[in-house]
Structures are given as C-alpha cells and as structure tokens.
Amino acid sequence: MKRKLFIFSLLSFVIVSFRSVNEIQFEVPNSFPKPVYNFSKNPLSENKIQLGRALFYDPILSRNNMISCASCHSQFSAFTHVDHALSHGIEDKSGFRNSPALMNMAWQKSFMRDGAINHLDAQSLAPITNPVEMDENIAHVVAKLQISKLYPQLFFKAFGDSTITGEHTLKAISQFMLTLVSANSKYDSVMRKQSVFNEQENKGYILFKKNCSMCHTEPLFTNDEFRNNGLKIDTTLNDYGRYRVTKNKADSLKFKVPTLRNIEFSYPYMHDGRFKKLSQVINHYANGIEKSKTLANELQKPILLTANEKVDIIAFLLTLSDKSFLFNPQYFYPKEIFSEATKN
C-alpha cells in the first residue's frame, strides 16, 4: 500500500511537472468576468494553439480542400464574412445566415445564431459537416490529416501523440479560437482611465447605456441571451431562429444577442446580414421594430432618438473597434507553419 502511494505521488509529480512546462494560463482582461469555458479540460499550450491556428486556416477541413474556417471568418472583419449578407461556403453555395464574428469565445454559453451548440469544442463540427459550408465529415478530416506531411508532427508536439483523433482536432481549433480575445478598444482604454471619450462619443455612451446596454451588456457587449429584436421575417428564408432548436413557440424569432465589439468592421449586420450600415441598424431600433408575441421586453417601448443622437450612438460604437485585435499577428495566416511543411 505504501509503495502504491509512493508510486502514485511520483507519477503525479511527473505529470504535474510535465504539464507546467507547456501550459499557458488564459489571461482574463481586467474588467471581464470569469470565463464560461472550462480550461481544465483543455489546458492551453503554445503548440496546441499553433496547431489550431494551422487548422483554422487550412482548407483541408473541407470536402474539396478549398474552404477553410477563415474563408467565412477573416481577421480584418473581426472573423466574419463581409462580402455577402448570407455567407457562402463550398462551391459558392449560399448558407441561410450571416456568419457570426468570432471573438471572446471563452465567455459564451452557446454558439451559433440560434445557440444550437452548447460547447465550443463541439461547435466546429457544424461548419465542417454542413453541406453548404465545408461538406466534410470529421472522420475523413482526421484521415486526411493523418496522411499529410505536416499534421502528425504538429499533433505530436501538441498532444504528445501523432495518432490524430477527432477530439484532439476539435480541441486544437477551440484553443486558437479561445485566444481571439478583444479587450483593447478605445472604450477599454477609457474604462482603464488611459484615455477619454470626445464629447460626441460621451453623449453616445450615455444614450447607449440608456437604450442598448440591457442586451448588449458591458464589458462583453452581449448578455449572451436570445432576443427577438423586432426584425420583420424574411419570407424567403423563413428563419425563426432559436425556435428551430427548441421548437418552443416562446423562442420564435429569437436570435443570440451578438457582441458589438469591432462592429465597425463586422458588417453586414443581423442574422441574415440585411443591414450594410450601422445607420440602418440604428434606424431599425428607432423606427423599424415589428411587433410580435415574442418581441423583447427591452424593445416594447419605442426608442426615441433624434438624428443627432443616432450619430452620437454610432460615434460611441466606433470606440469599440480594437485595432490590436484586428491586426494581431498572432492570428495571421500561419505562413511559417505551412512553409515548413513544403520544405520537408
């Protein structure tokens, strides 16, 4: 028994010391709450993040090896797809929603516009499998990765095992996505008292707190819940949002409240990308609300805004742009990883 204990403690010492060499602590920005994501089940490491980054940019995840995650989630637009209202996937097939911007994923309880998926690690399965997105299956992706020159060594570096599994593949993609943290906008520096809003931004901030922040709650600028924001239904798409998942009538026309961070660059707006400009979005909330049974409580009373006030709110929204996020070289296409593969 004593011997067993001794061995156990020896083993755990070995494991602990091995882990501490590689693990990276996830940094929570000062004003942010505790992350939802359970890092203890997928501890971050530099090699895993880099593997995830390679996978994120590699079209090997799609059936015809032509579409990558980055095809619909490009960094310069806060990881969304700016060209189309509805995002396009494999063979230019059109999806039925606007791809969501990717940032601050560690704080989200659910994913997709309708919250269909409750865990980040399982999330990537959806676009990989969707026939109008990547139209692949994860078992085939794993087989392709296993026979590639590049990936068995990257998986070995990351997980200590060159035998690739679906779990490791998806967890590595999660790791890269978890590093997409945007918390360094002008708004953030004002909150840290390192800079100040100009007069217009300040007016906009006051109006924002009065009219918008119930759902677009600071500091993440989303309450991570589902709301019907009074959009008239598009009768060709007939998208009833969260109802599609829960089949509960009370969820009809509800969509996940998106973050407003980097909104200047993540156009078009709304689940179907119907608005190209922020002014259209503000006009919708001021004048365009369609009443229905499930309309958000927060929108029951009209939001009255003068033309000047609308511009003020937009001026504030532009302070949520985070250039250090949009141009962070750590999120770039990993040229160095891929060129290493062609050399060998």
């Binding site: 089940k41 269909a116 998926i117 409750n118 865990h119 980040l120 690690d121 399982a122 399965l125 959806a126 990989i128 499998t129 969707n130 299956n137 994860i138 078992a139 794993v142 599994t165 679906g166 779990e167 998806l170 967890k171 998942v245």
Partner: peptide, 22 residues
C-alpha cells in the same frame, strides 16, 4: 451528452455527435 467532446468511442470521429444541435 452535454459537456463537449469526450474520448474513446465518444470521439467525434465516430460520427455520432449532432452537428447542428447539442
């Protein structure tokens, strides 16, 4: 069933995870 990815025969490669639901 509701806590993300699992290992062994619960690995997503076995094609038994919903891809549009939890």
């Amino acid at each position: 069933n509701t806590s993300g990815l699992q290992v062994g025969y619960l690995d997503p490669s076995y094609g038994m995870i919903w891809t549009w639901n939890t």
